[in-house]
Design a protein around this nucleic acid. Structure first.
Length: 282
DNA sequence: CCGCGGGCCTGAGAGC
DNA sequence: TGCTCTCAGGCCCGCG
């Protein structure tokens, strides 16, 4: 499920559960997610206090008292479950809700305050790696990531520099995490619809011959920001509500833009579904 | 260097 | 009911 807004929501929950708390022990119930765990993964985490939980692109970063950072990715189907154990008659001993499916529970964090945090990931596209202080900035997963779309560093000029000379489509460049970090298939579709730009359009066509941003690039930046902000708000309020998208997974429905007579179409680009309105997106 | 297709996994849903 | 097929919100690799 996770693109930037959903990962950010997970970050908040994780932070509430883990920030300032010591990890008592870590249990690997499987030895592999996207790759195998390092042999000392669990032992290096035990006894560390989580300083803070931040996000970069779709990665979650837990900074630890040791100076290490736990870098986590949810892949397509990863999620965390936070269980606060109810204290039993015996002080310090807790029991937990066992009613949920635990089939794909892979990593368990037991915190000193009795809270358990479980990483569950059916498809196992997720990943977890412990990174030392010196390697963090050069770590392949994080090095080369583009600007955060909601930060100052992301504007029409920055985007113009990234798109200049690119022969691919707008859809493809916006999915490229080096161009802008955190968008996925859904929010790229949504942002392009909002900016009234065709996903099939050539990326370089957004840049004027001199290299400056065309006005539509400003609209694209605004569109990206708007759909992300809206999603961040929705996640916090409803969460799990369907119907929150204008075009994604709405093939055949009417274009929601006021006065637009178009219908949403689905095409395949780079092996993935794109949804857009061929009438108002050019 | 770049863009594309395939692979990694499992589960849900559609259609027969 | 049960089989088969397609598709899924991410990322990495190898090929041309």
């Amino acid at each position: 499920m996770p693109e930037l807004p959903e990962v950010e929501e997970v970050r908040r929950r994780l932070s509430r559960a883990m920030a300032g708390v010591r990890i008592e022990r870590v249990e690997l119930r499987r030895q592999d997610l996207r790759g195998p765990f390092a042999a000392d993964f669990a032992s290096r985490l035990a006894g560390q206090t989580v300083r803070r939980v931040t996000r970069r692109a779709k990665y979650l970063l837990a900074a630890l008292s040791s100076g290490d950072t736990l870098v986590m990715h949810l892949g397509m189907s990863g999620s965390f479950r936070v269980e606060r154990g109810d204290e039993t008659d015996v002080p310090g001993v807790f029991h937990y809700d066992r009613s949920r499916s635990t089939r794909h529970d892979h990593v368990l964090f037991e915190l000193l305050n009795g809270t358990r945090v479980m990483f569950n990931d059916p498809r196992r596209f997720g990943s977890m790696v412990l990174v030392g202080p010196d390697e963090l900035s050069t770590h392949p997963a994080l090095a080369g990531l583009g600007p955060e779309p909601l930060s100052r560093g992301f504007d029409a000029d920055a985007l113009a520099r990234a798109l200049r000379g690119k022969t691919t489509t707008l859809k493809a460049v916006l999915l490229d995490q080096q161009v802008v970090a955190g968008l996925g298939n859904i929010y790229v579709c949504e942002a392009l619809h909002r900016a009234r730009l065709s996903p099939k359009r050539r990326a370089s066509s957004m840049v004027a011959p001199g290299g400056s941003a065309r006005p539509q690039l400003v609209a694209l930046v605004d569109g990206i920001r708007a759909v992300l902000r809206k999603a961040l708000k929705c996640n916090a309020r409803y969460r799990g509500d369907d119907d929150r998208f204008d075009v994604y997974d709405r093939e055949g429905r009417r274009c929601p833009r006021r006065g637009c007579p178009g219908a949403i179409r689905r095409i395949v680009q780079g092996g993935r579904s794109t949804y857009y309105c061929p009438v108002c997106q050019r």
